[in-house]
């Protein structure tokens, strides 16, 4: 039996993470791609059209998971920010660095697919309503995180700045979530809520669930893979990278 604290410390070790994450990444990529292929074909060809939106409703199968993941990734960065500010764990800093571009891409995808849906449905691709505006703010927050990381020399200072910005920006996630309930928005309220029946027929719910799961798996896999890359880049000169990459003289046993 390995005690919990051993796992905690070991998982904080760069080498343990670098080697242990390979299998996870492989399975997450495989699962993600399979689920997304099934989910997208289901959504495009087999799910019914909506009685009012018609065929455009199919865009929801990529828009909803992208928007959901863009917020979840931000919350993960904010949580990592708390952990970094308190424990100063290097891997947590690497996690924040790896997640920011992924979240940025997902937010862009949510905005783009939303606009594509909005043009035939609402009659416009963009309005300054609370939901859309707060999502645009999220996009800028991600850009801010990436820029801060690039602009500040020294990992400690950059990590500090990124953690604080991530934490402060987390308020925006609450605003995105409740914007449709607090304000009169053009964007409709959520169809799936905790503690209530979904306002969506099962024929839409199933392909959506498959796509959401697929997004989760692929994003988790990509995040781990990006962390590995960042780790090797930062630790390029260390002994563990040398022994993992099999270069130079072997260390004496």
């Amino acid at each position: 039996m390995v005690s919990l604290s051993t796992i905690f410390h070991r998982s904080g070790s760069s080498r343990f993470f670098f080697q242990g994450s390979v299998a996870w990444i492989r399975w997450l990529y495989v699962a993600g791609i399979l689920l997304l292929v099934v989910g997208m074909i289901w959504g495009l060809f087999f799910a019914p059209a909506d009685r009012l939106q018609g065929e455009s409703a199919r865009i929801m199968f990529v828009h909803v998971p992208a928007a959901h993941l863009s917020q979840l990734v931000y919350l993960a960065i904010a949580a990592a920010g708390v952990v970094w500010l308190v424990w100063r764990m290097k891997l947590v800093d690497i996690c924040m660095t790896a997640l920011a571009p992924i979240g940025c891409a997902l937010t862009g995808l949510a905005l783009a697919s939303g606009a594509i849906w909005g043009i035939p449905t609402w009659g416009t691709g963009w309005v300054w309503d609370a939901r859309l505006t707060s999502t645009l703010v999220l996009f800028f927050l991600y850009i801010g995180l990436i820029a801060l990381r690039g602009a500040l020399a020294g990992n400690q200072r950059a990590a500090m700045a990124v953690s604080i910005l991530a934490l402060v920006g987390a308020v925006n996630i609450r605003i995105i979530k409740y914007s449709v309930d607090w304000f009169a928005t053009l964007h409709q309220p959520g169809s799936i809520t905790l503690g209530g029946p979904p306002a969506m027929a099962p024929a839409f719910l199933w392909p959506l669930a498959v796509n959401v799961l697929g997004f989760h798996a692929l994003v988790a896999g990509a995040a781990l893979a990006a962390m590995r890359a960042e780790l090797v880049q930062r630790d390029a000169r260390t002994d563990w990278v040398r022994s993992v990459l099999n270069v130079g003289p072997k260390q004496a046993p």
Partner: peptide, 20 residues
Amino acid sequence: YIWSAYAICVLVLACIALRP
């Protein structure tokens, strides 16, 4: 529009997955 939404999605996801 539907095709373009899915094409953009696949493109972005491919970037997310392949870049790391």
